[in-house]
Simulated scan of single mutants.
Amino acid sequence: MKQNMLSCLGLLLLPLAAQAIEPGPSSPQQQETEAWLLLQSRGQAVSPIPQAAAASERDLSLQRWLESYKHAIPEYFKDYSGGQKK
């Protein structure tokens, strides 16, 4: 009984001993990506030319979005294992 109680106590204290992984980028590619995302979120890499869609472009994109609702959602998706199609 005493051994069982000590085992349970040890399991309850186990999460307190876990250590978190240091935050931050792990590779140069990730550092570069995070730098670009930071510039984007702060608005520091803004194009001097405003980019607005024409009315016809907005109409076409809205039409494409509305047509996407015409397709039925499948009951299940096919399972692909190992990157190979079955």
Rank of each mutant, 00 (worst) to 15 (best):
L9H: 00
V46S: 04
A72K: 10
P25V: 01
I49Y: 03
E22Y: 07
E34Y: 05
Q29S: 06
H71V: 15
M1G: 12
K85Q: 11
L37Q: 10
L66H: 05
L38K: 14
Q44E: 14
G82A: 07
S81F: 10
K2L: 08
Q63K: 13
A20L: 08
L66R: 14
D59F: 09
M1K: 04
K70I: 06
P15H: 06
P28M: 06
D79C: 11
P23S: 02
P50L: 06
G83W: 01
R64C: 04
S41Q: 14
Y80I: 15
E34I: 02
L11Y: 10
Q30E: 15
P25T: 07
A54C: 05
G82K: 00
C8N: 11
W65I: 08
H71Y: 12
K86L: 15
G10N: 11
W36H: 14
W65A: 13
L6I: 13
S47C: 08
Q3P: 01
D59Y: 09
E22K: 05
F77C: 09
E67H: 07
Q40F: 08
Q84H: 07
A54Q: 08
P15R: 02
A35E: 12
L39Q: 15
D79K: 15
L14Q: 00
D59K: 13
L37P: 05
A55Y: 03
Q31H: 08
R42C: 08
L16D: 01
N4P: 00
G82F: 10
Y76Q: 15
Q3N: 13
L13Q: 04
A52L: 15
A55R: 02
L39E: 15
A72R: 05
L66F: 09
Y80G: 02
P28K: 02
I49W: 01
P74E: 05
S61A: 11
L13H: 07
L12T: 08
Q3S: 15
E75P: 01
A17N: 03
Q44R: 11
K78R: 10
I73T: 14
K86N: 13
Y76V: 12
S26Q: 13
Q40T: 07
Q19H: 04
S41P: 06
Q84G: 09
Q40I: 02
Q3G: 11
E34Q: 12
I21Y: 04
S7R: 13
L37M: 07
Q29Y: 04
E22N: 00
P28A: 05
L60K: 09
A55Q: 04
Y76G: 14
P50V: 00
P23D: 05
A53W: 05
I49G: 00
L66E: 11
Q63I: 03
G43Q: 07
L13M: 15
S26K: 14
A52C: 00
Q29A: 14
S56M: 03
S56W: 03
W65L: 14
P48Q: 03
T33L: 15
S26N: 08
E34K: 04
S7A: 15
E57A: 11
M5H: 07
S7M: 09
S41A: 14
A52E: 13
G83H: 00
Q84R: 14
